[in-house]
Design a protein around this nucleic acid. Structure first.
Lengths: 242, 242
DNA sequence: CGACCTGTTGATTTAGATCAACTTACGTGG
DNA sequence: CCACGTAAGTTGATCTAAATCAACAGGTCG
């Protein structure tokens, strides 16, 4: 049932670093199974000490934290190729939750094997560190966005990241990509209120910057949007796949 | 001249994971020298592909990014024990800059040796990944702060992090720690304007929450401040030292 | 001495939050 | 099959936290 890593549907995409045949074998041994999660279901919960690590294979999800009084910060959207659970893997416990927004397929790894990876597979261990550094870089960029950009710039930045990522994942058709989230999710990701997000989206629709409706995001001119939002290095770097 | 790792002035602090004698030796070989940087001088610049990695030994600094139009986001403050340059080490280039706020002493490592660390010292490689995950966790928390908290809560959060870190570093005297930054730096870290930061600081001083003046931060009741700012896990986790 | 940097404070403006009402779509159960 | 409840999106009116503008004070340095 479970996909063999050698048949991995996303590994060959140019978004991902090429893996040696040996690395693929290593991952195949590291992988303990495959998990299908229904839309709306939690994958990992804050405070838990989950024994599992995941790589998203298909579907989309959400990473977030909740403050004691209920305010929610969406940390990022989870797309195929993302590695989930590094925190639990390396530190004691998760400080954020992850849940599936659509049905998702996940590769499952055993946390206890992580240490063996470091001992016997330095290449893979290096890739993992690379991924962690990439994640940190992304969070820094998000912080810069929320800290410094205006509402339309924030949305423009987020749309650029999403559009390019989904393009790399071959999910773009013409000028649009699927985007199965709620406006509330985007609002919580960007530190904006739902109402203001809605109005800003309406304005961007009016002036042809971007149209997000019925679960699809349409961007007529990506580079123009990026220039407007001052996205400095819009191209996504190649990344390792675990 | 250069401090031997075995004589490292901060290694024994309870903030840091204990290192085996072997690990200390490894680091001593990994370390290529020591660098003293004057206040106000850049350590690493955005876009550069620096051949060096650092661990802060003493002094304080700043990590930040600048948008094309000059807006600046301070990503965090650099304190002794922080590892600097992982991005350059593992990816192509830095996406942020680092500079010294006070005079700093830094351990210098050679980036080219990083790969050897992964190959021959899995324990140290694991620590490095741990550090990267910790850094990501911190950035997530900062994002949550800037995305969801009010101005006084943001400042409260930042003060809690700083106060506890400097306490762990044995820099607390009575109820105060040194904090040699400008109000502008804090404002840029928290996504607030300088003026509003100033006024919020004045209010916090008035109601006894915290007093920051003449380069010292005084917090009469840390836990009360943390409760006010809704800091969920105020205690700092033990961290590896590179 | 003047220039510059940092901090301070008051006046005014505004981006974005909050409040409120209404719509469409989709279940679910009587 | 319809009534009702709920989730998501939309839009207008009002409010407010924080930004911007402006002026000034103290300290330091060349």
């Amino acid at each position: 049932m479970a996909t063999k890593c050698r048949d991995c549907p996303i590994r060959k995409l140019s978004l991902f670093e090429q893996m040696s045949a040996e690395d693929v074998e290593v991952m195949e041994r590291f992988k303990v199974g495959e998990l299908t999660i229904e839309a709306g279901t939690p994958i990992l919960s804050e405070g838990s000490n989950a024994p599992q690590l995941f790589t998203a294979l298909s579907g989309m999800g959400l990473r977030y934290t909740i403050l004691p009084d209920g305010r929610r910060q969406v940390l990022n959207f989870v797309f195929p190729g993302d590695f989930v659970g590094l925190q639990a893997g390396v530190m004691r416990e998760m400080t954020h939750s992850v849940e599936a927004t659509t049905r998702m397929r996940l590769c499952v790894f055993d946390r206890k094997e992580l240490w063996n990876l470091f001992r016997h597979q330095p290449e893979r261990a290096f890739s993992l560190t690379w991924l962690a550094a990439l994640e940190e870089r992304f969070m820094s960029e998000a912080l810069t966005t929320v800290g410094q950009r205006s509402a339309p710039e924030r949305i423009g930045w987020a749309f650029s990241r999403i559009f390019r990522r989904l393009t790399e994942l071959r999910m773009r058709e013409d000028h649009s990509v699927p985007l199965p989230y709620r406006q509330q999710d985007l609002a919580d990701a960007l530190g904006l209120s739902l109402v203001h997000t809605n109005k800003t989206l309406a304005a961007m629709r009016r002036n042809q910057k971007a149209t997000w409706s019925d679960g699809r995001l349409r961007i007529p001119d990506l580079e123009e949007l990026e220039a407007y939002a001052m996205v400095e290095n819009p191209e996504l770097p190649k990344r390792p796949l675990m």
